[in-house]
Amino acid sequence: MSPALERSPVLRARPAARLAAGVRAVATSVRWYVRESTGEAAYDRYVAAHAADHPDHPPLTRAQWWRARDAAREHTVTTGCC
């Protein structure tokens, strides 16, 4: 690598910055995956959709929404594994 390039602040910062950006990207994906899998993201989506569809009244609270979800789950259990 030429000395001029080595002096470039962008490139000198590169390995560490790239590592940090990489770690952040992985952490973001993991967080997204976990929130999607557990259904935590679903409530946020519900609130956003509710705001667009029915701006005239407030959405269910988190507790109310999860209760409705539990009630629906009561009869949608499947057998699953062997």
Binding site: V34, R35, T38, G39, E40, Y43, R62, A63, W65, W66, R67
Partner: peptide, 8 residues
Amino acid sequence: PGRVSEVS
């Protein structure tokens, strides 16, 4: 309510 990751 809804804090599934936390409780897991």
